[in-house]
Nucleic acid binder design. Structure first.
Lengths: 115, 115
DNA sequence: CTCGGATCTGGAGCGCGCTCCAGGTCAAGG
DNA sequence: CCTTGACCTGGAGCGCGCTCCAGATCCGAG
């Protein structure tokens, strides 16, 4: 199975090497497998997961949120627990969307005023 | 015309006194009028503007964005300049909404999976 | 075998957005 | 007056999320 060097993984995910190591240290990804010499070897699965993390980071989730996300999905939680957690996150995101819409409304007013 | 003390203004806007002073120092609000003794006296207009600032902060705009926002709306820019700026901000917000929707989509998948 | 570029680790540094603190001033009640 | 509490200023401190650095190690090309 082919694996990716840190540089390639960084390139493919758009996340810097430093940030990849930071995410791994914080438990958001990995642990990433190592070669005999100690270098990281990213699998396609790792890349996929990094994509998910990036997606959530872009949506404004913090590192602690994501750590919790990983913990909930990986460890021994009931499906119910997971659904509860996921719904909470979803609801927080809805509120962020609502805040954005409010601000966009204000912008629209101003735009209309100056047009 | 009745004015508000810092504590009252903080209470009414939900923004802490320290943050109000910080916003003023950064040029996001005010300058706030002072009493003979040097204390701040917030007008209803100030409170309204603080509400706008809060709305944009909640939508994720940074301090620098807001400073620019104030500058654009207050100083000698053409309506065209203002509209260009406002549309840029709006478009950035739309992208944030899109990022949120992507993440919510992922969450929905997981929720469906565990339900 | 040697060289150079990629990677490793631990830790320092940084920009943002507050938040807190010390030391002093103002003003209303007693 | 004097006390008390809200407020003032300048500046330090903090949590977050990276980002950068030094010094060592690995490894493929020549």
């Amino acid at each position: 199975m082919t694996t990716l060097t840190p540089a390639t993984a960084a390139d493919r995910t758009g996340v810097s090497i430093d940030t990849l190591r930071y995410y791994e240290k914080e438990g958001l990804i990995g642990p990433i497998r190592r070669s005999a010499g100690g270098r990281r070897e990213y699998t396609e699965d790792d890349v996929f997961w990094i994509g998910l993390v990036t997606c959530f980071r872009d949506a404004g989730l913090g590192i602690a949120d994501l750590r919790e996300f990983v913990a909930i999905l990986r460890s021994d939680h009931t499906p119910r627990d997971r659904v509860v957690f996921l719904r909470e996150r979803r609801s927080a995101m809805e509120q962020r969307v609502a805040a954005l819409h409010r601000a966009m409304g204000v912008l629209d007013e101003k735009i209309a005023y100056y047009s």
